[in-house]
Amino acid sequence: MKPKVLILRTAGTNCDTETAVAFKLAGGQTDLVHIQNLISGKVDLSEYHILALPGGFSYGDDIAAGILLAVEMRYKLSDVLEKFVDANKLIIGICNGFQVLVRTGLLPGLSNSKSVEDTEIPQQTTLAMNTSTKFECRWVNLNTEISQCIFTKDIKPNLYLPVAHAEGRFTAPQNVLEELTDNKQVVFRYSTDSPTSTDTVAYPDNPNGSDNNIAGICDKTGRIFGLMPHPERFLTKWNHPRWTREDLSDEGDGLMIFKNAVDYAKTTFHE
């Protein structure tokens, strides 16, 4: 059985194609679906096992990154999404997709109210403007934390992935940050190329100034995952900025994240 992946598009989505390629390489079957076709009911989300929110500038990131798509999802797709989540299915949000998940409250999903149908914004964390105040595109080192996250099961302790964003500074109240750590919801932290040090990681290793160097988090169940770096941009060794000078394996660090999702769906939903 090939798990079905719905890659959600809307105006300004622009990493949908490479995200689809990543899931295909991982063994999934993918459909690029415009949100209009979910709202109109033309496409039924429940027929899918994985929902992916790719990177881009949804609705131009007007007001703030990801907020308009988040509001649209909360008000027009709340039931559909809730069923999807309750059915133990997977959601991944990359870059703009992460910003959307945080603004729907699906991440980190700490509030006890059923976030998606809650009328007041259940947002507990945010992704703010980089401390550099600029859009920046660069490769970063990541430490994999011990977490519930399905997507990072058995993944390398250190990954190398590109970031490309202006609003990626993960920030939250102290108590929320502690709760995230206690719940093992922190999945990736920005790191250095000598990832022994646990003290604060300075710019540009921490490219946006995120609290506690947080680059990616999951919900309590580990089935909803969001991150600022782009795993779909490191699928083959040729993506690596130093492949002409380093001895690398043909498979990129990013692919494992998509494989884990597809494998989980296979074992959990084998009809």
């Binding site: 990493c15 490479e18 600029k134 595109c137």
Partner: peptide, 13 residues
């Protein structure tokens, strides 16, 4: 660095 030169996943040099 202000330009996204990684999007689409195809820029290899």
């Amino acid at each position: 660095r202000q330009y996204d030169h990684e999007v689409q996943g195809g820029v290899v040099i």
